[in-house]
Design a protein around this nucleic acid. Sequence first.
DNA 1: ACGAGAACCTGTTTGC
DNA 2: TGCAAACAGGTTCTCG
Length: 280
Amino acid sequence: MPELPEVETVVRGLARRLPGRRFARVDLHRADLRAPLPPGLKAKLEGRFIERIDRRGKYILIHCDDGGVILAHLGMSGRMVLHDPGDGWRRAKHDHVVFTLDDGTILSFNDARRFGTLDHIDAAALDDHKLLRHMGPEPLGNSFNGPNLARALAGKKTSIKAALLDQRIVAGLGNIYVCESLYWAGLSPRRLAGTVQGARAEALARAIRETLRRAIAAGGSSLRDYVQTSGELGYFQHQWAVYGKQGGTCPRCAEAGKSACIKRIVQSARSTFYCARCQR
DNA sequence: ACGAGAACCTGTTTGC
DNA sequence: TGCAAACAGGTTCTCG
């Protein structure tokens, strides 16, 4: 489920419901997530008011009134699920941490594969946190542009596909949006990362921003209650140009009346989809 | 130091 | 239909 646009959608959903509420009760049902839950989490949270919800890369940040911050990562299968007060909620399979708010709303952190993480730290230490310290720029932020991306890629011998999955280069991209961004930038996923300079880096930075912006718009407009529901994929899946479409025809080739062009290859043990004609 | 691949864990889809 | 293999949106560790 979660790359940057999905996490952003979750954050927006939480931001509509959580601020101003208080954690009445926190229940830890399973502590062995990707990293162990921080000691004393329950005591640190119960009674605290929630001030605001932020995002950094794929991390969800829940700020509390005592300066404490919950840091949550959804991994591959994690979800934040909200239940209205009095809707007969019962703990579901893989509900590892359950937050009960003062108005009876239930927020559950559910993660079948347990690749997700939850941590709790002081807001003052946020930038130094080991999970955030080396994270690259926000792709929708001001410091992300062609020249800065080119600098980050300079000298890199790995493929551009692998480089964009590296959260130190740019924050928040995952397998789907890397494939989609490379398609719109017209760059082959096999291209050496270090060769993406100048106009190519400019095109890639623009493609990344545009792809994410469109995905957030699709998730945000169509999944108003995203965090309350099953955590299914958002509607942007219907706008994928190449991801999951091996054997098909990409939008540009289809427009030009050309034959099937989309290939699937495996790079660093993960599927890559691309147009063999448009991407160089 | 860097890059590729394995490992982590469970659920769903695909293929015989 | 049944069972096994392949695959899944992420990150981190190990090995060469």
